[in-house]
Nucleic acid binder design. Structure first.
Length: 178
DNA sequence: AACGCAATCAACCGCCTTCAC
DNA sequence: GGTGAAGGCGGTTGATTGCGT
């Protein structure tokens, strides 16, 4: 007895979006705005699940998305926020204008996670893998940040708040992204 | 040049939360 | 207050691309 599917799967496309589908979605949202994702596909002439439309719009089609590589500042903010919020990607994304939860999640899993592990830090707990009892996560986190800072970015993050970092990051990000 | 492997990214699935009735 | 529908979120998967052998 599973729950009822969110849409008529037999009549919906799956997989990569085509340019035509993207355009239909963009045109529809520009005209009608976001909302009522369930009925959107039908109204927009799309053979897609409403959830799929929402995801596509939020993650790739929204005009305010930054795209491109993450800056060092963003990198550090993500680590900081993750140490506070855990895998609450939408919360973290909310602190990073122009970034989506999916993007951050992917970036975490592919880049940051590995970096932390290379530094001997458990990405789940932000504690040292070797010395779990003696190394408070704050210390380990700052160790990572310092190491990263000195070796990669040259920008100091010590003593700054998340908001300050954010400001620096987004300013820098725009400057870099152009 | 061809093949295999690893890394990356886009998309889907299913659960949880919120909201309207 | 209970119920169902819809939206939102996080985890996971599959396809594609890049790199090394």
């Amino acid at each position: 007895m599973g729950r009822s599917p969110c849409c008529e799967k037999a009549h919906t496309n799956k997989g990569a979006w085509t340019k035509e589908e993207d355009q239909l979605l963009i045109d529809y949202i520009r005209t009608n705005g976001e909302g009522s994702w369930r009925s959107l596909p039908k109204s927009a002439g799309l053979l897609r699940c409403g959830k799929s439309c929402r995801l596509r719009w939020i993650n790739y089609l929204r005009p305010d998305l930054k795209r491109g590589n993450f800056t060092d500042g963003e990198d550090q903010i993500i680590v900081k926020l993750h140490s506070i919020f855990g895998n609450k990607w939408s919360l973290i994304a909310g602190k990073l204008p122009g970034r989506t939860d999916n993007e951050i999640k992917n970036y975490w899993n592919t880049h940051i996670k590995r970096k932390l592990l290379n530094h001997g830090i458990d990405p789940k707990t932000h504690r040292s893998i070797n010395e779990p009892k003696t190394a408070p996560f704050q210390d380990v986190k700052s160790t990572f940040l310092k190491t990263k800072t000195s070796s990669e970015s040259g920008a100091s993050t010590s003593g700054t708040t998340i908001d300050e970092d954010l400001r620096l990051s987004t300013d820098g990000g725009r400057a870099v992204a152009g």
